[in-house]
Design a protein around this nucleic acid. Sequence first.
DNA 1: GGGCTGATTTGCT
DNA 2: GCAAATCAGCCCG
Length: 185
Amino acid sequence: MEIARCLLGKMLVCEGVGGLIVEVEGYVGQEDPACHASVGRTLRNEAMWGLPGHAYLYFTYGNHWMLNVVTEPEDYPAAVLIRAIQPIFGLELMRERRRLHLLKSKPDDRHLTNGPGKLCQALALTGELNGLSLQSERLFLAEAASGLALPSSEIVETTRIGITRGVDRPWRYYIKSNPFVSYPN
DNA sequence: GGGCTGATTTGCT
DNA sequence: GCAAATCAGCCCG
């Protein structure tokens, strides 16, 4: 889970649109009942068994793509789900893609990227990018401007959400008091 | 602001 | 067939 914590505060950019990672969850190994790899190696979760530093993208609930960062060496399935980012670049494009103005609720930039499905829509991340390196032209993960790691006093550790198995493991991390975190405590 | 529910497609048993 | 690492709308207060 060390890597999950390190990803907080890092910059994620896809074709000029992106922001700072503010919320993540770790899914580790076949023994983790919430990890997609718990069912073994399949076509869907193949990318998780691949090289670290690459993307694992999957589709769920009929509408949503989810972005994960593969974290362990080849043949050990583990990844960190990016649950929320703070928008920095390409705000206008994000607003267009999210179509907040068409929703009933009042437009609020927090709704651009405060959830794993929302941020994929805002950055236009789909299965097309599955398995891609996170140091590629299109999709890029970089150090935050300061280059400094976040002090642990700024990180909140809780249980993962939106799952039905392995709910006890405290592998969700987010930046304290950040307005773009989904379901802050 | 919080809780509940329907939507909708894919991958896997 | 069914469950799913979600989201938005609706109701309530």
